[in-house]
Design a protein around this nucleic acid. Sequence first.
DNA 1: TTGTACGCGTTATCAG
DNA 2: CTGATAACGCGTACAA
Lengths: 378, 378
Amino acid sequence: MPYVTRATPPPAGTRVTMKDVAAALGVSTATVSRALQDDPAISAATKSAVLEVAQRVQYRPSAAARRLRTQSASLVGVVVQSVGDGYIGDVVLGIQGRAREFGYQPLFFAAEGQPGLESEALDVFLSEHVTQLIAVSPTGKPQLLRRAVAEGMRVAVINGDQSVPARHFAEVASGNADDKILKIERARNSPICDIRFDDAAAGRLATEYLISLGHRTCVHLRGPNVRSGLLRLLGFREALTTAGMWPQPVLSPRAPVMQHREDAVTQYLRAASPPAAMVAYDDLCAVAALRAAHRAGWRVPDDLSVVGIDDIQFASYTNPGLTTVAQPKYELGALAVDALLADGGCDARPRVLDGQLVIRESAGPPSRPAGGGREPRR
Amino acid sequence: MPYVTRATPPPAGTRVTMKDVAAALGVSTATVSRALQDDPAISAATKSAVLEVAQRVQYRPSAAARRLRTQSASLVGVVVQSVGDGYIGDVVLGIQGRAREFGYQPLFFAAEGQPGLESEALDVFLSEHVTQLIAVSPTGKPQLLRRAVAEGMRVAVINGDQSVPARHFAEVASGNADDKILKIERARNSPICDIRFDDAAAGRLATEYLISLGHRTCVHLRGPNVRSGLLRLLGFREALTTAGMWPQPVLSPRAPVMQHREDAVTQYLRAASPPAAMVAYDDLCAVAALRAAHRAGWRVPDDLSVVGIDDIQFASYTNPGLTTVAQPKYELGALAVDALLADGGCDARPRVLDGQLVIRESAGPPSRPAGGGREPRR
DNA sequence: TTGTACGCGTTATCAG
DNA sequence: CTGATAACGCGTACAA
């Protein structure tokens, strides 16, 4: 028999509604509705008939009508800071992929760190009946999040960060101030679920890898004054302490921009002598180190081993390819959705995910066989 | 007088509707509706009163109800292929920024090149009453776009590309086959508006820059077998022809992946001698060239000058910083919105935007002063 | 200038 | 198992 005759597509603007489907079968719209949502109280025969017709006439439910009727949206709002920072991509995919499994649709909004845009994002979400919100690495004030919970939204934060006083870094870099750090870790906002990367563990892992390669001198390139920066430094120190190699130098760029990072590394390299090893706050910092080393004529990894953290998109394209601790980006996104939607979204326990070492070419054993500790010769 | 008493936020789930606002003022919902949309037939007094109350009780219009009533959505669907390829970010911003000016909200969908996802994206858009669609550098079959126009959507394509036979590249690289290229350029889909980067001009600009620096030997690193690749090669050839330097070598990686690109460059470098110059298909190809040069011990830009095209996010972080022809990414996004929304969206003329040279460190004059043409000494 | 009444496409309740 | 009916929140033609 010939292929099903496709109804000619409606003249651009008209919609096929349930009424049309119902009329085509001589049943009521209620029946159609029931068939479409697998209501048990319906005969198998009519159900399949409805499904068949709906398919043939290209029926699509009106999200607006459904939303109006049910007063619930199946939408999850997502605020990201900057798109395309090489890290957000897979997180977005994780969110979209998992949300899809729940029949939810993500509604993305790029806030670019502007409070005005954040506020507008919330207005849009509210208008759209969005009740679930995911904030991806929010950097600014927690204003948006507070307002969101005040409006009755469930919110999950992926890698939320917060400023910490600069002196905490100095304390960790020199003395023993773990208790302070832990206190910061407690400061949580209750109706918000935290999904995060284990920064301390990542710092530890990166450092342990360099130690295992035989390095005896290992420097840290600090990140900005935020909690994740502090925790990665903490992990760095822990690994070194365990190995009996603490203390080691901590490089502090004057500002969290590429140029200052390069400067800090350049300055260090001038005073040091190969071979050395470095754990950078993140891949971007690692890239700054790579550039500084290149300019100073140090070869990577022969003279300087560098390990980054994050595994951004570009980590495999640096020169040489960057060894790094990868964030489980897709999973972070997926878990945020789970936190909001699984089991009715009543599970507010924070999730902490471990990183994974990705070995490329920027770190290797010290070129001269590792002997006892070697002091940089001035 | 004390600050306006804020009504306690509704108990999480309840919505403030027009009815509430109307009741608070003792007017009808029609009046409220009119006041909110600047209907001329309303007294200034009641209008301001309504506005004031609406503001105080945190009224937000229900997008769903409005959509159902007006049968139009103020939504623009956006399909991107891969998020976070370092290029999409600013385009997204341009779309969001301009859409906002029209009171439209972008609805993003990452299709990742999977036809299944593309189809689902369309279903979602249809359900959401989306009638305007933007596709950002679609790679796959034009299936999605065809279906979209069949469903009555207006669609704009940013940097749409299409496969071209591999032999066209060979023809351009050797003979004179411009007419074929132009024919390809004609093959357009009518109800679709094309917003695109001028690939040929970019190829020309990159090449002219190298020539202006004094290079007499200038090689091209080919991209994949798509139209943009062909056009950039064409621009490369035009610039060289004008300068009386054609022909020059065209490197053809066996497959459009980083490894093969590196291999192609490595192979060329082995047979050549410094100094040389190269125009890469895009920044990623340029990065491959940088890596190959680094491994072969050639210094950039002293021994090899490299110019990329696109100016992806990471171009300023390569080692050395990449000189490249920047796409006007934000503007591409903004113009796509204009094409759909400005003047009722009846303007289907294609827009072609020029690139801009961004000078960083990867290209410089040949280290030995440029004399007559120098042949690579085998 | 304002109010009344209706319908957009669904789903849920209540009869049958 | 199925049909009639009401209501979700808003915009608008029509009446006042």
